[in-house]
Simulated scan of single mutants.
Amino acid sequence: MQRMTFHHIGIPTSEQLPDSDYSEALKFHASGYFESPYAIEWMHFDDDNALPDIIKRIPHVAFVVDDLEAAIEGKNIVLAPESPCDGVTVAFILDGRNLIELMHFDKPEQDVWPHPDKFMI
Rank of each mutant, 00 (worst) to 15 (best):
T5Y: 01
E82A: 08
E15I: 01
H44N: 15
S31P: 00
A71R: 02
S23P: 00
I58E: 10
A50Q: 13
E69D: 15
M1K: 07
M103I: 15
D106K: 09
K75W: 01
D53G: 06
A62G: 12
V64S: 10
V61F: 05
P12K: 03
Y33W: 11
K118A: 13
L102I: 08
Q2R: 11
V78W: 02
V112Q: 06
F45G: 05
P18V: 04
V112D: 10
P18R: 11
Q110C: 10
E109H: 05
D21W: 04
G74R: 05
E109V: 14
E73S: 12
M1P: 05
A30I: 08
M120D: 07
V112L: 07
A39V: 01
I55F: 04
D117A: 14
P52Q: 05
G10V: 05
M4C: 09
F45A: 10
S36H: 11
M43Y: 02
A25F: 07
E69K: 15
D95G: 02
H7R: 10
I121E: 09
P18N: 07
D106E: 15
S14A: 12
H8C: 06
W113E: 06
K56Q: 12
P108Q: 09
P12E: 06
V88C: 04
L26Q: 10
A25H: 09
L79R: 03
D66S: 13
N98G: 09
L99H: 11
L102H: 00
E101W: 01
V65L: 06
P81R: 05
V61Q: 09
S31H: 15
M103S: 08
V61M: 11
T5S: 11
A50S: 11
L79S: 08
V61H: 03
P52C: 03
L102Q: 04
M103L: 15
D46E: 14
R97M: 08
I54N: 00
I72W: 03
V65N: 07
D21Y: 13
H115L: 04
D21P: 00
F45V: 09
A39Y: 07
E69A: 14
V61E: 01
H44T: 12
P37Q: 11
E109I: 13
A91N: 07
L17M: 06
D21G: 14
F63S: 08
E24M: 03
A80Y: 09
D46Y: 00
L51N: 02
D19K: 14
I55R: 00
W42L: 15
D47N: 12
G96M: 02
R97K: 11
E101K: 03
F6L: 15
D67H: 11
F92Y: 15
D53H: 03
K56P: 06
G96T: 05
Q2T: 13
H29L: 00
I121D: 13
I40H: 03
S31W: 08
A70P: 00
A30K: 04
F119A: 04
G96L: 03
Q16L: 14
M103W: 01
V112I: 14
K27D: 10
P18Q: 05
L68T: 07
H7S: 12
T5H: 06
L17R: 04
N98Y: 02
I77L: 10
Q110E: 12
C85F: 02
C85K: 13
S23A: 01
M43W: 00
N76M: 03
L26H: 04
S36R: 12
I58C: 07
I11P: 03
N49R: 01
N98V: 12
K27I: 06
Y22D: 02
A80H: 13
